[in-house]
Write a protein that binds this DNA or RNA. Structure first.
Lengths: 201, 201
DNA sequence: GTCTATACGCCGATAGAC
DNA sequence: GTCTATCGGCGTATAGAC
């Protein structure tokens, strides 16, 4: 027990990242000062620079880690057969993953314009890779004749915008439960591309 | 001709608002300084305060004017018969209106968190009124048995998110024309709520 | 109506004590 | 590993000359 006041290296780093994510999501990157982040963690501003070279890296790392996690989780989905089942799975996954990480999602979608060019390019590439996994599903579905989409790129962006919008209103313990929300959005996504809805799971 | 350097009252005000809207959209409210806005207009920073009491009012006024215009334009749509036609009309209107004002839309959707509480409440009420016009269409359609939506509130938010997403990628002179984009989105919206698509106009 | 000058505070980041 | 103290700069907003 009773420990010296110093040496909290293993926990301070993550706490700084968590505080930054929370404050960036709530007030925006530009509106949050390093002093505010430090205060939230309970250290002085100078101590932050033991864990990040500067404020910009803090933002870029948060966004990169979020997108890396998203891509990894998406790649780890169990294989399913047929475009309809794949779109259903993707929609439910997207909703669930985003519902669980509202702050990270908010930062990753809203702070792109505050990234320096090099960081922007890198983050944008990750986002594009994620979109491409959805577009591949839509292309396969169209080729198989089960989706009716005039333009797969447009449909991809429309679906992602619709699904991501869940983070604007969903609150834990609200009127609609998580599984319900996933099911409704998945059904709307399938309908939107002209697929026959899947039987309820 | 040859006019004194002063007295540009009628044009400086709108130019300040236009510059602020553009810069806020591009870099975010918190990241833009009054000095930058003044520089864009070609006046000194102090002169801005002849046209706005402070920076916060500049933001709130931009957002309020945008939403007022949106509501007025929406209310002025010609009447059409039947939920499907009304949803089709709403979707095309929403896409078109948003495509024409990308900066205003961006600011109105992204800078809510930078509004002081009183301004936030007022702006949020306008946004809610707009959403309600869509929800009324969905409720009527469900009552008439032509839309299949488990929850009209959720469907409203999902559709608005999908439609508004167009501003993230649409560019004048791009691969897809404006009418094409409107038609595709409107068809996706109708599909999403389980309506039979309208015959192509 | 616009300018210049300025008040006053907070910003990100660093240096050096402990 | 954290703190205190500090640097130079830029932020919003105002005062007063023209």
């Amino acid at each position: 027990m009773a420990r010296k006041t110093g040496s909290h290296s293993e926990i301070t780093g993550p706490r700084i990242r968590a505080a930054a994510e929370h404050l960036f999501a709530r007030h925006g990157y530009a509106a949050v000062s390093m002093r505010q982040i430090a205060a939230e963690v309970g250290v002085q501003a100078g101590a932050l620079y033991l864990y990040t070279p500067d404020k910009q890296s803090l933002l870029a790392d948060l966004m990169r880690d979020h997108l890396d996690g998203l891509l990894a989780a998406c790649a780890a989905l169990p294989p399913v057969n047929g475009p309809e089942a794949r779109l259903d799975q993707f929609a439910r996954f997207h909703i669930g993953y985003h519902i669980d990480r509202p702050d990270a999602v908010f930062v990753a979608y809203m702070e792109l314009r505050n990234l320096e060019p090099a960081n922007f390019t890198a983050i944008e590439a990750l986002r594009r890779r994620y979109e491409n996994t959805l577009e591949a599903i839509l292309r396969d579905g169209r080729a198989a004749g089960v989706f009716a989409v005039p333009d797969t790129k447009l449909a991809t962006l429309a679906l992602i915008a619709m699904l991501t919008g869940v983070t604007n209103w969903y609150r834990e313990g609200g009127r609609l439960g998580r599984a319900e929300v996933e099911a409704i959005y998945a059904a709307m996504a399938l309908n939107a591309v002209g697929a026959s809805p899947l039987p309820t799971r």
